[in-house]
Design a protein around this nucleic acid. Sequence first.
DNA 1: TACTATATGCTCAATTAGAGCATAATAGTT
DNA 2: AACTATTATGCTCTAATTGAGCATATAGTA
Lengths: 294, 294
Amino acid sequence: MDHHVATCRAELVAVLTTLRNGMPEVLTLQDGRCLPAGPLETEHTSLQRGLRHWVEQQTGFRLGHVEQLYTFGDAALAQQDRLVRISYMALTRDGQTQGGWQSWYNYFPWEDRRTNGCLTVLKTIEDRLKGWAGDQTERLERCNQAFGLNGESWNDDAVLERYELLWEAGLVREAGRETVSQINGQSMLGDHRRILATALSRLRAKIRYTPAVFELVPEEFTLLHLQQAMEALSGRLMHKQNFRRLVQNQQLVEETDRYESGVQGRPARLYRFHRENSENCYLSGAKLPLEEIS
Amino acid sequence: MDHHVATCRAELVAVLTTLRNGMPEVLTLQDGRCLPAGPLETEHTSLQRGLRHWVEQQTGFRLGHVEQLYTFGDAALAQQDRLVRISYMALTRDGQTQGGWQSWYNYFPWEDRRTNGCLTVLKTIEDRLKGWAGDQTERLERCNQAFGLNGESWNDDAVLERYELLWEAGLVREAGRETVSQINGQSMLGDHRRILATALSRLRAKIRYTPAVFELVPEEFTLLHLQQAMEALSGRLMHKQNFRRLVQNQQLVEETDRYESGVQGRPARLYRFHRENSENCYLSGAKLPLEEIS
DNA sequence: TACTATATGCTCAATTAGAGCATAATAGTT
DNA sequence: AACTATTATGCTCTAATTGAGCATATAGTA
């Protein structure tokens, strides 16, 4: 038999995240139904430049530093004209731009464990998943691992695993066949929601051992701001005193001589990121199991 | 101006790693000068299947589970016929197959901190880097971070950063312009050595929080075997008693009733991987700074 | 002034990590 | 058989780190 080198087109997809009002938000198009994306063109001198071009053209936004996420090779497409979809992640603190910013947790309502609402969603999911798994131990085991059931612990980073499990169990649907349920969350076109889940997984993992949060908070911030940023991204509440101890011991921040104003209570000191000491940054721990309240 | 969707070819590259005689080895072609790779063809129904096809064709090896590493879009190539290089990583315990297995540390002699030889290489590198950096604080800072100089700590995972820094400083060369120096290590064609560095970084990070090591050791192993596997991959020596405490406390392994035979000293008990308890696997710590001896 | 709300300092117990000593079990040697 | 070399395994001790919560400080507001 003879072999032919396949030609393909490359599509570039961007997941740009910002924080606003204590919610992580993603830049979208078409009323939240898809991510900024476009094909690699002959004019583009690199993948990243192609990505920047499309994001700027479609949303007016200029990307800063980007990180590659994953490359999907769509097997379902025609042999002759393949599509390779290369996805990237970026962060910005300037989400003020007009445009389709959507909360992450519209797409993944089960991921925001700061709220009690999430817990009721998770209860429903648990029931449905158990129905799906039946007595197949392999499925049960996967459900337990992904959703921290049956004594297993919840793993923040496993956003993609949870999404894919829900998909496999038929509990989430994408564009065209939405079931308007409390579980489903907002759907997207194609596999864009899966790409979004990949980004969320990566970012949650990343903020634990790199100072990436600081790209999302203002130049000057209070320790509570920083904590709330971490909580928004990880979807979990943290213990206030321990969080500040962690941050201060690692000397990740330096004091300014200014204080927050115009808020209730004792005014909080403003800090700034101390770039020099950020080699080993661990903001992981300091969790408070407030989730168990409800 | 008019825009044209670019067509491109996709090349698939594999980094297959095994452990043999206490050394991590990678499957190569052409006497170690490149990695198994080939273009995506119309016959391939997915990227992974294309990868498997080429590896099997070129080396006779059938890949198991693979993990995507990174997609390089070569900007230097002609506009009309672009190349997208998608790289993957895989592990196997069956490195016995004939073929071009090469030690990782032939390519990165500065990464194997188990040996004293490495330390002399690092000394040389340190000197040369300082020469390159001069009094540019930005360069100095990067050298310190990457190589754990000047009070900073050595980060196992930063293999790619170190390689790229050495490249930038002109201390490593690729095919065609080898300088046969003790520092350089073995060179490869194109950017294959960079892909290898990416794989090393990823694997070193991965073994710390997943049970990936168990894919590289035999079904039954002693705790020392397991420790030596970790040491080979991370390039660092560990404290024996603390390592076994860590492994046993996390119940990552289960005893068998068999013992190792045919070796000196008290025979060691054989263990096997305990898959059920492997959700939170942390084999990080338990380091012994034997490196400081020399 | 008293009250409320938030920031910040500090303590205490439990757990984990780093280092090293002591004993156990084997093969080979005298 | 006693001794030695060598590796495995058990155990201790101290220093850090983590989890949780109490106490005090400093603002605005009734």
